[in-house]
């Protein structure tokens, strides 16, 4: 009798825990695809500040640059738009289209090093995946 009670209690507790984990899991999964994720680690931020932000910000003098990519606005974008921008950032640095050659000729210290390029690419890749881009 005592044993039966013990078994009952243990199963009840484990069932409760199990139902909680399942609930939390499904919540985590759905929030992963529904909510836009935009995080910029310090090392990425440093590269962006040095090589990209000068033209791609809200107060930029270059209308075209800020219309195409504005780092001040990235966290407000919906997933489709954000993944689109990230994919274009990935391609632009991968193909060495950005920063523009003319700009680098004038400010050689703004050039992306090979490791800067890799850091930006894996950052973009990671965020594209977190936003359901796979």
């Amino acid at each position: 009798m005592k044993n039966l009670f013990l078994v009952f209690t243990i199963s009840a507790i484990s069932l409760t825990i199990l139902s909680f984990t399942i609930k939390n899991n499904s919540k985590a999964l759905s929030s992963n695809t529904d909510v836009t994720v935009y995080e910029v680690p310090a090392d990425v931020q440093e590269i962006i500040d040095n090589s990209c932000y000068g033209c791609h910000n809200t107060d930029s003098k270059s209308t075209k640059s800020k219309m195409k990519l504005n780092f001040d606005d990235m966290s407000n974008l919906k997933q489709g738009k954000l993944v689109g921008k990230l994919h274009r950032i990935y391609n632009a640095v991968n193909d060495v289209d950005m920063p523009p050659k003319k700009f680098i000729d004038k400010y050689p210290d703004k050039e992306l090093s090979a490791s800067d390029t890799e850091t930006l690419k894996s950052w973009a890749n990671n965020l594209m995946n977190k936003n359901g881009g796979l």
Binding site: T63, K64, M67, K68, G80, K81, V83, G84, K85, L86, H87, R88, N91, M128, G132, G133, L134
Partner: peptide, 18 residues
Amino acid sequence: SKIEKAGALDDISDAITV
């Protein structure tokens, strides 16, 4: 791929805007 489509659509919207 999905990300290539998103990139192309963003590019379309920007290219027309500017």
